[in-house]
Design a binder for these strands. Sequence first.
DNA 1: AGTGTAAATATACGATGTTTATTTTCACGA
DNA 2: TCGTGAAAATAAACATCGTATATTTACACT
Lengths: 234, 234
Amino acid sequence: MSPRPRKDERSINLQQAIKETAWQYIAEYGAPALSLRAIARRLKITAPAIYNYYPDRDALVTALIIDAYTSFGDAQIAARDAFAEHDIIGQLHAIGHAYRQWALAHPQRYQLIFGTPVPGYVAPMDQVFPAGARAFGVLVSVVEAARRVGRLRTDLFPPITPGDETALEEWRRFGGDADALSLSVAVVIWARVHGLVSLEISGILPPIGAGIDALYEYEMASIERQFFRTNNHD
Amino acid sequence: MSPRPRKDERSINLQQAIKETAWQYIAEYGAPALSLRAIARRLKITAPAIYNYYPDRDALVTALIIDAYTSFGDAQIAARDAFAEHDIIGQLHAIGHAYRQWALAHPQRYQLIFGTPVPGYVAPMDQVFPAGARAFGVLVSVVEAARRVGRLRTDLFPPITPGDETALEEWRRFGGDADALSLSVAVVIWARVHGLVSLEISGILPPIGAGIDALYEYEMASIERQFFRTNNHD
DNA sequence: AGTGTAAATATACGATGTTTATTTTCACGA
DNA sequence: TCGTGAAAATAAACATCGTATATTTACACT
């Protein structure tokens, strides 16, 4: 009935507008409540029009995840590059701080990445992995830099098993030239940070009051003590 | 039209049967895909009949979460009590092992507890907290036992802020008589374990191959070294 | 034996993702 | 300038979901 609106009366890039509206919706109601019809309603569009830009809802979710990973990675890259390359502890601390701050500023995006956002959705690794590897690669780069100058503590670390080597090649296709040891250490560090942050965001931490800031700082200090040398003589 | 079936022809306790069917459904399709109508279909029931046992879907989800927490807590309690009370390291290691094993055996339950299972659902803390506190309390009890015999390392731990004390009282109403320091140390330990386990379950760990077992063991050893003394002279 | 209550069904409503068919708009070549 | 064809939007429909309402059935108790 009603005619199609003129091109200059609507958003130039509707594909981008859909994502932005989706982010608004996610920020308000959370990732699992994402609704194509609600997005269309806000854009004064009918729901099937979205299918001209995304084949289905999963594709939109994938695009959102990739965008979130990109923003997440940008924040960490900026934090790392604010410190000199030789200042490994400074870079590490900055990354850890940026990690938590980004997560607290965008909890829905964090849960979109690491949670189970949508029923039946499984992230297509071939599309998501590069963006995720870029974000994770920031930490890996610092660990690897420490290892190269002999400032990575690996005494008690479990030996790298042969199976890890084949997996490492897949990583190198995206993430860089870190070796298996640096990658494993980075995973352990990442898991510690992710554990605290995800529990904090989920709101299921037991009542320890306002001490979360201090606990997070303590964990960052623990990581630095355990895995890094301040010089290469100790 | 069709008459109501005889009582002895159907499940004695339909309330329990609904939960069991829900678990089946969750195990197959994941927590976010939980559907009341699908449950009813499997039970050869109409969907509104469920409302005689649960006021809405959120109530069912809450019941499932409480059941999951109970099972999770049982596993850790059994693991702890398999070691003598004075064997703190043994108990700690057993709890950590049981934690991961339970999560790997029931990944959907783990994600139901710690993820965002259902759009718009927020866990009612007054109902869920006791069950969650019981599961978390197992770790707390071991940490507190170590503290009481002077085997908890607290040198570098951040001081407990005054705000934590008021929050502690709320914990004591459910969890026991641990003090604020033990509670905070337990949170840090929990976060480390949760971080690795949740990343492993989500399948978003970078390709480090089969080394996850070794990394987990390494982290448990790290926890023991950092927070516990083998005797009270060191 | 009759009656009231509890539990199930039947039906319906609004919302969702998605498909199909139809209409409208725009860009481009004759 | 005028068609023409492709692109993009709408319209309508379908199956599914959670849930509310009204109705019917079965059982327990007096």
